Simulated assay, not measured.
Amino acid sequence: MAANDKTNETTSAVPLTTDAAGAATGSAAAAGGGAQEAKSRFNSALDEAKAGAQALRGEASQRAQAYKEQAATKGSAYAEQAKAKGGELAVEGKHRASEALTSLSRVVAENAAKVDDNLGPKYGDHVRNAARGLQDAATHIDTKSYDELGDEAREFVRKNPGLSVGIAAFTGYVLARMFRR
């Protein structure tokens, strides 16, 4: 058996290794074309890595586009829901403002008789006119749509900027005083 072992031995002093394909290769220093072959394999591995990175980039881009479209769709749906809910709340707020003006008009009209007794009929007429004005404002708010009211408010501000700033300042002052307590 010792004789058979010697015939199967290789006489090369270069250690053999196997590559990814399972082929036996020697070290680059021992083989004359080994350095060239190593460079070739390194370049092919590098090209393969670049191709893999390119494929991953393409896949990531496709996924990002899909997520972007999905987010846009959901965003549009949420925007529509918010717009509908905002419209409902605006109509409800308009109705409540109208009711508040109507209630205030009734209170002012009820107190007109007391003003007649205490200050005279001239001042009582002013109070009744104010009550009618409040009732007319309530009716106006009730009959107009939210968009029409917004347009009227913008037009008023364009025509009367000084008065608009004064009203805003007074309203802010009153609200600040109410919430301070």
Rank of each mutant, 00 (worst) to 15 (best):
N160C: 05
A13K: 14
V174F: 02
A77F: 11
E99H: 04
G33D: 13
F179A: 04
I167M: 05
A77I: 08
A21Q: 10
D116W: 02
K39G: 15
L134R: 00
R128G: 01
G93Q: 06
D117H: 11
N8M: 08
T143H: 14
R96N: 09
A23R: 13
A30I: 04
T102Y: 06
K159N: 14
A71H: 03
A138E: 03
G34F: 00
A130Q: 10
L89W: 03
K74I: 12
Q65D: 08
D125V: 13
A82Q: 04
F156Q: 05
E110A: 15
G124F: 03
K6G: 02
S61M: 12
L89E: 12
E88D: 08
S61D: 10
E59P: 02
T18H: 04
E59Y: 03
A28Q: 08
T10R: 03
A49W: 09
A38S: 09
G86T: 05
A112L: 01
S61A: 10
R154C: 12
S103D: 06
A2T: 07
G32I: 13
P121T: 08
F156R: 08
T102S: 14
S98Q: 01
A29V: 09
T102W: 02
E80W: 05
V107R: 10
T10W: 01
S103Q: 07
A131I: 03
R128S: 09
R180N: 14
Y78F: 11
D47V: 07
N111E: 09
D5N: 14
G58H: 06
F179C: 01
A28I: 12
P121K: 04
A23H: 10
A113D: 15
E48W: 04
L134I: 00
S12I: 03
S105N: 00
D116F: 02
R63E: 13
A2D: 12
M1N: 03
V108S: 01
L175M: 05
T73A: 15
A29P: 00
K159F: 06
K159L: 14
Q81R: 13
K144G: 04
R132H: 11
V14I: 11
V174P: 00
A72E: 08
A153W: 05
K39W: 15
G87S: 05
R177Y: 00
D147P: 06
K122H: 08
K6F: 07
Q135V: 02
A130I: 08
G75F: 01
E48A: 15
Q65T: 13
G162R: 11
T143W: 07
E37M: 14
A24M: 09
L149V: 04
A131S: 05
A53E: 09
N43C: 12
N8R: 11
A3I: 15
A82E: 05
V165H: 12
A13F: 05
T171A: 15
G86S: 08
E37N: 10
R96Y: 07
F156T: 10
E110I: 05
V115I: 12
G87Q: 07
P161C: 01
V115S: 00
I141F: 06
T11C: 02
A100R: 07
A60Q: 14
V108H: 01
A137M: 05
G162H: 07
K68L: 10
G52I: 12
K50P: 04
L119V: 08
G86E: 04
L46V: 09
E9T: 02
G166I: 06
L163N: 09
